[in-house]
Design a protein around this nucleic acid. Structure first.
Length: 804
RNA sequence: GCCGGUGUGGUGGAAUAGGUAGACACAAGGGACUUAAAAUCCCUCGCCCCUAAAAGCGUACCGGUUCGAGUCCGGUCACCGGCACCA
């Protein structure tokens, strides 16, 4: 007997909507006295292709948790929105001649339709769209706060530039030397760019990880991204000059092994002492050559070291007075540390390679390897190192070296981070305008807060300008303005913000999405924060999560949000691969559209399958035939109604029910949805074997299943005559004592090999279990005529008899 | 190269304070019902073996610890993710 899913799914979606059961209650409203639970999923980028089933899986996890929490009596907020600024929309708009606004609206409508059909329990009254004026007004507002505090600043820099998209990209966006959006090669270009000083929060971002419940891999990735290293700054003097060459090292205890210095080709001291450098031509040529390479090429390739020696300029080791040569080499970067290093070829492979090529001395200072063959990077006894000789512990020798540097006044301990400041501007139309005015007299002047939002002006042609100019620069009426400070003629900043901006604080706006006085009411923030559980993809745990944690911590320091961390817990779902086992993509033609699945099988089947297909955190390929298995399961659930009679319990099923309630309750919490569903499948198999169950038991069953397949469960509940909707009824409980069987099957092993099984009463004493095992007909042949050496009995599990 | 993860039937995957490997599904094969098909129901389903039982072999590979190892330890290989000349 098949149920008409298209009819009942629409019916229940409408009822949930009309009754407002999924609306989160703000402080003061009836219902807000309950404990709050804020579940957050990463809001989608509304692309023209629409959603694929991977989105559904990403939201289904916390959908189940949210529905369970409501049944457990929580006031739940589970919101949804759209991260809609960005290049794909703009590129599509340029291609088709549509306006990005129209494209965005159309895509959001499509996404909303897809989401609605799946029956998610989102609070649709809180939808945010990062491209709406009411939203980006506050994105700009937060930016101005950062500007006010000196965290948003402008600086000339070599930037990653994408010649195809005609934009400047952050390092994060140009990983691998390729543009993140169009995958063309990045080139280096000098330009004035906006930065957010995220490095100022490096320590806070790192330390904050101690107090949050993130998946260990998530934490580890963030730690690596921030990349804190402890070491020392050392000042080498330039021979014959009153000048210091400052370097950073993580191994100040290897100072006696320094045989040369390396500076980044762009190092400013080179220009300052150009007169002293006799081979300046070669130096400049080398520098020009390096400028052609991207940072990726400089750092990525395992290539032969290149470099050039500075003739006429040498450095002096402050610890032993030794005069050493200075080289330029592109393996040293201006952007990390001080742009110069002390080279210890005996104990750093890069330095060793370089020394080997240029015929420089190698001095061993740590025993343990053969430094004539390769660098030795392990631990060992310090040698050839003056006051450090004899140290064997790395920590101790470093501490001693730092003390000595300090005493001599030539250096001090210090910390470096791998994380760089965040390049924050794009020369594109479809983004938040940066609300800054450039005045020839007053410099950079913020647009007054009361004039926000600074609206994105209307344009017909918004293709980027030549040479990386923002299209906004072409609108005279926009560019030309008066300085808010002095009233004189001024020019407006024409760059826009990157897509990461809007997603850095959206979880705050959900809390109070319609507020026009501030980004969110403090009382509401105090009630809802922090986000109790945030789920999303592993690909966002460094960039998006670190950026948003940075914004949140900034707002916390201003006293504008009540918690220092935005997210109390973070989990991640795995991808859904195409049926061919490849990552789903339009070009491969292996994308599965949730609408097609809903049309053919219904939303409940789609939801069940995305959760049943495998471990939630792992990638798994889509399988059409496996979807049919979930359909059969739900049809069998529907069939339960016809065999449910009377009240009370079915004795044969009682233990199975208690076990299943326990298992499903626990598995949902651990996001082990696949085994939870398997347990319910197992139970339904048991029920059909018995042939009947009670109405009470059926209610328990559909309550367990309803977070996964809510429509069919609500329908059955109604057919049973229950007036309260299942989604607001109480989560079932179980009796721990009734989850255990009275007789258990115990395995019998002889010498560790399974030879039989025996049924024993639960908690049967060891000696009785062993006696029973020995008496088993299948076991007797294996012990007859042999000497028993040892007998092991694990209660309710196993008996192992060792014989000889 | 470094860091992290994974490796289990034809397939997706279960099972780790060490204790009956393959739960739950999918696919496949056989049967029932049907004029027939679909749907549904029943049976079989790691390998070896003509079949069945028994025995033997099986959780990437090699070795170790243990009464007992998918699980712990050492080594090897493969794949996936992240970072990458980071001083």
């Amino acid at each position: 007997m098949k149920y008409d899913f298209s009819k009942i799914e629409k019916k229940w979606q409408d009822r949930w909507d009309e009754s407002g059961v999924f609306r989160a209650k703000d402080p003061g409203e009836p219902g807000s006295e309950k404990k709050k639970f804020y579940a957050l999923v990463e809001f989608p980028y509304p692309s023209g292709a629409g959603m694929h089933v991977g989105h559904i899986k990403a939201y289904s996890g916390l959908e189940v948790i949210s529905r369970k929490r409501r049944m457990e009596g929580y006031n739940v907020m589970f919101p949804m929105g759209f991260d809609a600024f960005g290049l794909p929309t703009e590129n599509y708009a340029i291609k088709t001649g549509m306006h990005p606004r129209a494209v965005t609206d159309k895509n959001i409508e499509k996404f909303t339709g897809q989401l609605r059909r799946v029956g998610f329990s989102f609070d649709w009254s809180r939808v945010v769209d990062t491209t709406e004026e009411d939203y980006y007004r506050w994105t700009q507002w937060i930016f101005l706060k950062m500007f006010e505090k000196g965290l948003a600043f402008r600086d000339a820099a070599l930037v990653n530039y994408c010649p195809s998209c005609k934009v400047v990209l952050s390092n994060e966006d140009s990983q691998g030397g390729k543009c993140d959006i169009c995958h063309s090669d990045i080139v280096q270009k000098s330009k004035d760019v906006w930065y957010l000083r995220i490095t100022e929060y490096a320590d806070k971002l790192l330390n904050g990880l101690e107090g949050v419940d993130y998946l260990p891999q998530v934490k580890q990735q963030q730690v690596n991204w921030i990349g804190r290293s402890e070491g020392a700054f050392v000042n080498f003097s330039l021979a014959g000059k009153d000048e210091k060459l400052r370097i950073y090292t993580t191994r100040p205890d290897t100072l006696f092994g320094v045989t040369f210095m390396v500076m980044a080709p762009e190092h400013p001291l080179i220009d300052k002492y150009a007169d002293s450098i006799s081979n300046m031509d070669a130096v400049l040529a080398y520098r020009a050559e390096c400028a052609k390479k991207t940072e990726f090429e400089r750092t990525q390739l395992v290539k032969e070291k290149t470099g050039v020696k500075l003739e006429g300029l040498t450095a002096v080791n402050p610890i032993n007075g030794r005069e050493i040569p200075i080289f330029l080499a592109d393996y040293v970067m201006m952007g990390y540390g001080t742009g110069a290093i002390m080279a210890v070829p005996a104990h750093d492979q890069r330095d060793w390679d370089f020394a080997h090529k240029f015929g420089i001395d190698v001095i061993e200072v740590i025993k343990g390897g053969d430094v004539t063959v390769e660098a030795y990077t392990g631990d060992g006894e310090m040698v050839n190192s003056g006051f450090l000789n004899g140290y064997t512990n790395k920590k101790d020798s470093i501490r001693r070296a730092v003390e000595e540097l300090k005493r001599l006044g030539v250096g001090e301990g210090g910390v470096q981070f791998k994380m760089k400041d965040w390049a924050f501007n794009r020369q594109r139309y479809w983004g938040e305008p940066i609300p800054i005015i450039h005045c020839p007299h007053c410099g950079m002047v913020p647009v007054p807060y009361e004039e926000l939002p600074l609206r994105l002006p209307e344009m017909k042609e918004f293709a980027p300008g030549q040479g990386g100019e923002s299209p906004l620069a072409r609108i005279e009426s926009y560019v030309n303005c008066k300085c808010p400070k002095c009233g004189g003629d001024a020019r407006r900043e024409t760059d826009t913000m990157p897509q990461w901006a809007g997603s850095s604080w959206y979880f705050l706006r959900y809390i109070d999405p319609h507020n026009d006085k501030c980004f969110a009411d403090p009382e509401k923030l105090a009630y809802w924060l922090p986000v109790d559980w945030y789920n999303g993809g592993m690909e966002h745990v460094t960039r998006h999560m670190i950026y948003s944690r940075f914004w949140h911590k900034f707002l916390y320091d201003l006293g504008l949000v009540p918690t220092s961390e935005p997210y109390a817990k973070r989990t991640a779902q795995g991808l859904i691969l195409g049926p061919d086992g490849e990552k789903m993509s339009k070009s491969k033609g292996n994308v599965v559209d949730p609408n097609d699945v809903v049309d053919e099988y219904g939303a409940d089947v789609l939801r069940t399958y995305t959760l049943f297909m495998g471990d939630y955190a792992s990638a798994a390929p889509w399988s059409d035939s496996s979807v049919r298995g979930c359909k059969r399961f739900l049809e069998r659930v529907d069939d339960l109604f016809s065999i449910a009679k009377g009240k009370g319990v079915t004795p044969e099923l009682e233990t199975a029910f208690h076990k299943t309630v326990k298992k499903v309750s626990e598995d949902y919490e651990a996001m082990k949805f696949n085994t939870a569903i398997a347990a319910m499948m197992g139970l339904i198999n048991d029920i059909f074997e018995v042939g009947h169950l009670t109405e009470d038991e059926l209610v328990t069953f559909i309550k367990l299943l309803c977070p996964v397949a809510p429509h069919i469960c609500e329908e059955i509940n109604e057919k049973l005559g229950n007036k309260t909707m299942l989604c607001v009824s109480e989560w079932p409980t179980y009796d721990e004592a009734k989850t255990v069987d009275h007789t258990v099957e115990v395995a019998v092993q002889i010498n560790g090999k399974l030879r039989g099984t025996i049924m024993l009463p639960k908690d049967c004493p060891k000696d009785e279990a062993i006696a029973a095992a020995k008496a088993d007909v299948r076991v007797i042949p294996f012990i007859e005529g042999k000497t028993v050496i040892k007998e092991i009995a694990v209660p309710n599990k196993i008996v192992n008899i060792v014989v000889k």
